[in-house]
Simulated assay, not measured.
Amino acid sequence: MGIYDITARLLDGTPQPLSHYRGNVLLIVNVASKCGLAPQYAGLESLYRQYKDEGLAVLGFPCDQFAGQEYDDPNAIQQFCTRNYGVSFPIFEKVDVNGPNTHPLFKLLKAEKPGLLGIQTIPWNFTKFLVDRQGRVQRRYAPTDTPEQIERDIVALLRQPAPASVS
């Protein structure tokens, strides 16, 4: 199974096949509104606005597995993101990124790019995965790696020639 075979639900409950993003460079992030790293939303939004027309899609997946730092109410999540950071990139329903109920997307991401010492567990909110236009996971970034620090890697993938046919 590849990334484009997975469907996730947007924050409003609408199913969103990830095949919708086929041919884009993806930055997939597990996010949390009440996390001390939440100011990274500003950098993620900046990257999205700057590069979306070149094919960047930032996908935010709220997660409440780390110290209960995400709202229960999807409307509260949306309001937080919009009011505080002007987020316009897609935010999905809350997911588990570790444990028995791990969302299939995060199972795939962790299998493709395990963390240090091959450990597949996601350590905290704002772990980031960079996926190329062919749907291959290229890099995994620590929660403390800021959007600004990974911009160069994003730009490098955006500058690669688009595939002749993306299957």
Rank of each mutant, 00 (worst) to 15 (best):
I3S: 08
I3Y: 14
D5I: 08
I6S: 07
T7H: 04
L10E: 14
L10I: 07
L11F: 04
G13N: 09
G13Q: 12
T14L: 06
L18R: 02
L18M: 07
Y21S: 02
Y21D: 05
G23T: 11
V25Q: 07
L26N: 09
V29M: 03
V29W: 02
V29G: 05
V31I: 15
V31G: 03
A32S: 13
A32L: 06
S33Y: 15
C35F: 11
G36S: 13
G36H: 03
L37T: 05
Q40Y: 00
Y41H: 04
A42I: 06
G43Q: 05
S46L: 07
Y48C: 04
R49M: 03
R49N: 01
Q50F: 05
Y51W: 07
D53S: 14
E54M: 14
E54H: 11
E54F: 10
G55P: 15
L56M: 02
V58G: 01
G60K: 04
G60T: 09
P62W: 08
P62K: 10
D64F: 03
F66R: 00
A67W: 09
G68P: 05
G68K: 11
E70H: 02
Y71Q: 06
D72N: 13
D73M: 13
D73F: 02
P74D: 01
Q78T: 14
Q79R: 13
Q79M: 11
F80I: 00
C81R: 04
T82C: 06
N84P: 05
Y85S: 00
V87C: 01
V95E: 06
V97E: 00
V97S: 00
N98C: 11
N98F: 00
G99S: 03
G99T: 09
F106G: 11
K107M: 15
L108G: 12
K110A: 06
K110S: 12
A111V: 13
E112V: 12
K113H: 08
G115R: 00
L116W: 10
L116G: 12
L117M: 08
G118V: 11
I119S: 08
Q120I: 14
Q120H: 09
Q120P: 11
P123D: 00
P123W: 06
P123M: 08
W124R: 02
W124E: 03
N125W: 00
T127L: 03
L130W: 10
Q134G: 14
R136H: 14
Q138M: 15
Y141W: 01
A142S: 05
D145I: 11
D145Q: 14
P147N: 01
Q149K: 14
I150F: 05
I150D: 04
E151K: 08
D153W: 08
L157C: 09
L158D: 12
R159G: 05
R159I: 08
A162M: 07
P163H: 12
S165M: 15
S167V: 14
